Simulated scan of single mutants.
Amino acid sequence: MSWAEQIPDIQFIISDGLNPRALMDDGHLIPYIDSLKSTLKNSGYSVSSKNIVIKHGRVRAGYACGEILFGKRNTSESKGIVHIIGERPGSGHHNFSAYLTTAPTSTWTNSGTVDHNISKVVSGISDTSLTPKIAAKQTKTILDRMFTVI
């Protein structure tokens, strides 16, 4: 990924995880991403124009991406990921979750420091459960809090 010096505040990562259908179903992934990116940009966040896609990725794969992408600078400036993962096969809902992680670049620099203890999750996203547009609003609210706390 070539950002030059224009490192975005937020990078989206998409992993099929345990349930690729959760991301492929009509009305799931695209409405969530489109709504969330639009809301984030309108609120002043810079968002990468390219998504990272990981086949069979799990939560910690997103942390590793954040370390590679944001760990080159050792500052107090916060950067974050929204890691979308297909989950909970067999539920009939084809749910996916969004794992949200923000940290100063100085934290992303230290390999293995970013982990579950500083992440939040919005789970159960699908057209038959927590709808993508409502989930996007919840995600934005949580990200606002996470960026403010740091």
Rank of each mutant, 00 (worst) to 15 (best):
E5R: 11
E5A: 13
E5M: 09
P8I: 01
D9L: 06
F12L: 11
I14D: 00
R21L: 08
R21V: 01
D26N: 12
H28A: 15
Y32Q: 02
D34I: 01
K37E: 07
S38K: 06
T39S: 14
K41N: 09
K41Q: 13
S48H: 03
S49W: 12
N51W: 02
I54L: 00
K55E: 13
H56A: 01
G57K: 11
V59A: 11
G62C: 04
A64R: 04
A64M: 12
C65P: 02
I68S: 14
L69N: 07
L69T: 13
L69S: 10
G71I: 08
G71D: 03
E77F: 02
I81Q: 00
I85S: 04
S91A: 14
G92F: 02
S97Y: 08
S97W: 11
Y99N: 15
T102L: 06
T102H: 03
T102W: 02
P104S: 08
T107I: 14
T109I: 10
N110L: 15
T113P: 00
T113E: 15
V114W: 00
V114C: 02
S123F: 01
S123R: 09
S126P: 02
T128G: 05
S129Q: 08
T131Y: 10
T139C: 13
I142M: 07
D144C: 05
F147K: 00
F147G: 00
